[in-house]
Nucleic acid binder design. Structure first.
Lengths: 346, 346
DNA sequence: TACCGGGCGGCAATCGGTTGCCACCAGACG
DNA sequence: CGTCTGGTGGCAACCGATTGCCGCCCGGTA
């Protein structure tokens, strides 16, 4: 019930007493190389090591206002799409000697808000991956602390995003080449920026390519959500489906399978993100691979630059190229659809 | 380049001045209900709200020694096995109004050590999921801060673990019933406690059931590791394989497939953990499901109890039951193996 | 009216660092 | 030999909260 858990740890005062110098000298010896004579400094380092002294980062914060910590907030850690983003962010943070803490908000904007409110005083900056917050809420926090968004664009807040427009065009072209004309887009969360952008880009690409694009949803961006979407997908069944993300696509394939619809024979399916596991589902998923790791590294690098005083101002979003990975879930449509290209399937 | 990023936030001093009271009164009004007269308290709350005041958690820490934060360290966040653990830990932390931060150490003991060293002064407690550290290193930190380990047992440190012994027995019995006699265990990281325990339990079960158990490895606990293991698996090919975890099992199935070995016709495969995606691989994986969510909740609940002064002392590990989930990757062995049970496969 | 007790609010110390300012001392130079 | 200069190290204020202790004032009671 004591106020301290565990025994209390040594402080600069302990080191100072042990060395017979003032605490300020210890502080300087440890953090301002050259400020203290070599002899004294050496003695202090030695005693500090012997006592196992380590600066209390929280006490350090008060005078300096810096914690050396940044937080990466992900909208749902249960989605493998974040793996590479996290890894990228970690490596960039480690390279700059920042501590990266991770926070999951389970697709809940309220929780996201709470977390940010709680952390705004304790971290040097925010990296938001696929935030579900409103633009206004994001900007409000961005005014108080350096911030970057990943996979999301908000006016006045620096961001790094995959090239969704180009990606959707690739996906559309791939389907057009196979001979598809009727495509359904399976929507993710309405609060998802990427969802909106992908839908618009797909619609535009569809128009250019002479395809009819429908949209259903929204659905939760999970396997369960995709399974539920399958039921809505079959009437009328398009010849191809593009889903907001891979989880949704995989769930939809499972649901279609349960409904007796064959992929890719009866309908082609394309996902987005190229997550872990999108290659081991059946059939292996054709998907639009986002540059996820780069999203993480570039985002955090920029964030740290801002923390170190770089001007955050105007600059446009950093757009990174996407890539279409063709696997087994796409094929030419069945004959019934009329004007299909020459050869049969292969 | 200013020392503060963003404008500086209001403090109790600002609120106090605005209200014409002392800072201590503001502090009490905000955190000790009843200590201050209703009238004053109301005025203070109103002004605080108007100014958008929020306590600086770091400043709060110094006098109290408590941050209200606990950290969950996972050995590799890229493994879906942690999803339920994280979710469970989050819910338990949220219920107790603690902030949970997540830290990934990418299977690196050095990094795990660094992270713990860095956080030991800034968090109230540690939850270690599947730590790769030595027992001594774990105990050293456990002496300084409350700690629980999940999926790992270390003397003197409270822990919560799945019942590996019982689980491996289930797996062995399942294979024995199908008629298997020669089983190979595919090892995970040598620093993994669960790996050791699972191997021992399997060997013991195998002896009782009259099966020959071999072991190969160690391999990285990833899909790539499993793929590599497949090559070592085929000579001599056993009739069944049990892998340290699902990722390894899935990778092994891919590798076996590439080698022209059919699962489950030529060899049965069992994984451990029942991760997201173990049901959408082909064939769907038979696996030993650990009580992952409970691992997270029970672990964090216990940790918070310790922080609040519960005695951490003796108590044995909390053991939670596992469950075997039979899917499509296990079947009776081929005839060549001699004494197989009556019926053919079905 | 005098005294007592309790509610309420203020003072100031404290947590563990950082840092501006100043004093001291030694060596160099005129 | 006196003064200047620069290298060292100490003093004390400060960051923003919490909290022990004390004093004031008001009301109740003898």
């Amino acid at each position: 019930m004591g106020k301290r858990n565990g025994e209390s740890l040594p402080t600069i005062y302990d080191v100072a007493r042990e060395c017979g110098v003032a605490p300020s000298t210890v502080s300087r010896a440890l953090s301002q190389p050259g400020r203290v004579s070599a002899k004294t400094s050496e003695r202090i380092h030695e005693v500090a090591a012997r006592l196992g002294y380590q600066a209390n980062p929280l006490a350090k914060y008060l005078p300096t206002g810096r914690t050396g910590t940044i937080v990466l907030i992900v909208s749902d850690i249960t989605n493998p799409v974040y793996f590479p983003v996290i890894r990228g962010a970690e490596s960039a943070a480690a390279a700059a000697e920042y501590t990266l803490v991770l926070s999951d908000v389970g697709e809940s904007p309220e929780r996201e808000r709470e977390v940010m409110e709680k952390l705004v005083r304790t971290v040097d900056g925010f990296a938001l991956a696929t935030s579900r917050l409103t633009d206004a809420a994001i900007r409000a926090v961005a005014r108080r602390r350096p911030m970057v968004t990943m996979n999301r664009v908000t006016q006045q807040v620096p961001s790094v995003v995959p090239d969704n427009g180009q990606g959707m065009r690739y996906a559309g072209e791939h389907l057009a080449e196979l001979g598809h004309r009727r495509v359904t887009y399976v929507s993710g969360p309405p609060t998802s920026w990427a969802n909106t952008v992908r839908w618009r880009a797909l619609r535009a690409a569809g128009e250019q390519l002479g395809m009819t694009i429908r949209r259903i949803g929204p659905y939760a961006p999970t396997v369960a959500g995709g399974w539920a979407a399958a039921a809505d997908l079959v009437s009328p069944l398009p010849t191809a489906v593009i889903a907001y993300n891979d989880l949704l696509a995989i769930g939809a394939m499972q649901g279609l399978h349960d409904l007796g619809v064959k992929v890719p024979d009866d309908v082609s399916v394309i996902g987005c993100d190229n997550i872990l596991g999108s290659d081991w589902c059946t059939p292996a998923l054709t998907t639009l691979a986002a540059p996820l790791r780069e999203l993480g590294t570039r985002g955090v690098q920029h964030l740290i630059a801002m923390i170190n005083g770089a001007d955050a101002r105007p600059r446009r979003p950093l757009v990174l190229p996407s890539q279409l990975i063709v696997r087994e879930s796409t094929a030419p449509p069945r004959d019934e659809d009329g004007d299909r290209p020459g050869s049969g399937r292969e």
